[in-house]
């Protein structure tokens, strides 16, 4: 009884917090000053058509570095908690349809993932989405070929290589230009080309490799191997 009242009070309190947000809400008509500056700088200073990418990789680059670190810690945590219980590994024999189509589809899914993160500065998408697509390709491989071993040492190598290269590009920004993670270490190029926008596609591809290998490790560990 007391518990129910406490739950009711907590939910009512949460609603009370959001009541002023709803009642005072008005759809805005113009960007605020900071956002307008980001949109303007993304087009004129960085040569990046996708403004969200330039916010993630450059303006809030340090946030993204911290976020990738959190993802790494979560991967290590999952691995530490679930390590070495091979006996309850999930083994479901795949349907023949899945087995046959996966041999064609896995390669195509990988190519799609690489396309998404190398074109992150031009089209919607980027390192996080591309990494997830690559991880889902490995998931299809795991489900269709039950005995396929996904090498931990290759995953660890890709993961640590892309992490070190990400920080290395950031430090190169300090040495060669004005600040950490500045993409100006490479030439800007023609607006809208694949090889343009300085180091942004390079950094986003490294993020894609890192996210893809980390999520694949999480999936492999959760499956029980």
């Amino acid at each position: 009884m007391i518990k129910n009242i406490a739950v009711l009070l907590a939910v009512a309190g949460l609603l009370m917090i959001f009541l002023p947000v709803i009642s005072g809400f008005q759809e805005r008509d113009n960007l605020n000053e900071l956002a307008a500056d980001y949109v303007d700088g993304s087009i004129n200073d960085l040569g990046t058509p996708n403004v969200v990418t330039s916010v993630i990789v450059t303006y809030r680059g340090l946030d993204t570095l911290g976020e990738v670190t959190v993802l790494f810690l979560a991967t290590v945590g999952v691995g530490l908690l679930l390590k070495g219980n091979r006996e309850d590994m999930i083994k479901i024999s795949p349907l023949e349809l899945l087995e046959t189509t996966s041999s064609v589809l896995v390669a195509l899914i990988m190519v799609l993932g690489i396309y998404i993160f190398t074109h992150g500065h031009l089209t919607p998408g980027g390192g996080f989405q591309g990494g997830v697509v690559i991880a889902s390709g490995f998931l299809l491989l795991m489900l269709s070929k039950v005995n396929a071993k996904i090498s931990h040492s290759i995953m660890n190598f890709v993961e640590s290589f892309s992490g070190v290269a990400y920080v290395g590009i950031g430090i190169a920004g300090i040495v060669l230009t004005i600040g950490f993670l500045n993409p100006g270490i490479l030439p800007l190029g023609q607006f809208g080309d694949l090889f343009s926008a300085g180091a942004i596609p390079v950094i986003y591809s490294l993020i894609g490799l890192k996210v893809g290998s980390e999520l694949t490790s999480i999936l492999v560990t959760m499956r029980g191997e």
Partner: peptide, 15 residues
């Protein structure tokens, strides 16, 4: 926000 839509569709409902 097509970027967020892609992420949510692949992560939220997939992985």
């Amino acid at each position: 926000s097509p970027d967020v839509a892609m992420t949510e569709a692949s992560i939220g409902s997939g992985l």
